[in-house]
């Protein structure tokens, strides 16, 4: 793309972001402030993830971009095009082929490898924000590991609902030290964070924070011993490929309330169908 540097950001900015990333990797789960730039996409639409991706992307990388687990949702398309234009890198929809995956709100079903990096788009990096609005105060709480108030919230949920009522962006303890917001992935995806072989990077552009979970790091969802964390999903199988262990989207079929459940991870579903697995509504697809 004429007139712009590789992946849009100038090298100085990328260096600044990479310095922040190094600090983040050195202190797993801790939010590092960084000088987030205004990007051609609005704040809240992935500018943090885009800046992180732009800073670590190289010409030989293969990039996958997903939103809600799908490659063809409009914002994923928009971001993938952005990098195709500004970096000219190869893009893919296949998780196994990608070296760099930028994601909004899901972790792919296919387990990631050591040679992969996953970049999460984060709207709100501060896990305590609903309990304490002041960032000056939450900073102190993280420094002093004062997380009692978070457990009080869990206690309150159990007292009121009989179970913890947090279903996404479920807070986790990283490396037994820092409380972290894993981004609005469903609680179902939380177990995938634990000891993941891939490097996990988190970018919040509007809030101007970067954090990271290095490979094989301890990541545990907060819970009580007698009310252990539960990764919930809809109790159905995918209508297209029959998967009983993947996160499902609920699709409303008609105005009589008919519903179909399908894999949210479109690549995972396509791979399964290509391998011959079919659900009740599934149609065999030619292998790609």
């Amino acid at each position: 793309m004429r007139g712009y540097n590789f992946a849009y950001l100038d090298e100085q900015t990328k260096r600044m972001i990479r310095r922040a990333l190094l600090k983040a990797v050195a202190i797993p789960g801790y939010q590092i402030p960084f000088g987030s730039r205004e990007m051609p996409l609005p704040y809240g639409w992935g500018t943090g993830g885009i800046q992180v991706t732009a800073s670590v992307l190289g010409p030989d990388d293969v990039l996958k971009v997903i939103d809600q687990g799908a490659d063809d949702t409009t914002n994923a398309v928009s971001i993938r095009r952005f990098f195709a234009r500004t970096a000219g890198v190869r893009t893919t929809t296949r998780t196994t082929e990608a070296t760099l995956i930028q994601t909004r709100h899901r972790i792919p079903e296919t387990p990631l490898r050591e040679d992969q990096i996953i970049v999460y788009q984060v709207p709100q990096p501060e896990p305590l924000y609903r309990l304490e609005a002041s960032r000056a105060e939450t900073r102190r709480m993280h420094a002093l590991a004062e997380y009692g108030v978070m457990h009080v919230k869990l206690y309150e949920d159990i007292a009121r609902f009989g179970q913890v009522a947090i279903s996404y962006d479920y807070p986790v303890m990283v490396n037994r030290r820092y409380l972290m917001a894993p981004s609005p992935i469903p609680a179902f995806d939380n177990p995938k964070l634990h000891r993941m072989p891939a490097l996990q990077l988190f970018g919040a552009g509007r809030e101007k924070r970067i954090y990271a979970v290095p490979p094989y790091t301890d990541v545990r969802s907060l819970d009580f011993e007698d009310h252990p964390f539960r990764a919930g999903r809809a109790p159905h199988a995918c209508g297209l490929c029959g998967a009983a262990d993947s996160y499902l989207d609920e699709v409303v079929i008609d105005d009589r309330g008919q519903r179909l459940f399908v894999c949210s991870d479109t690549d995972y579903c396509a791979e399964r169908r290509a391998a011959g697995h079919l659900g009740t509504e599934g149609v065999a697809e030619a292998a790609e």
């Binding site: 004062e146 997380y147 009692g148 108030v149 457990h151 009080v152 206690y155 309150e156 159990i158 007292a159 819970d223 009580f224 011993e225 007698d226 009310h227």
Partner: peptide, 16 residues
């Protein structure tokens, strides 16, 4: 209950 339990939780109590 949450008010009374908070100090316990702050000290690491993890059994509801």
């Amino acid at each position: 209950g949450g008010n009374v339990g908070e100090r316990l939780m702050a000290q690491g109590a993890r059994h509801y």
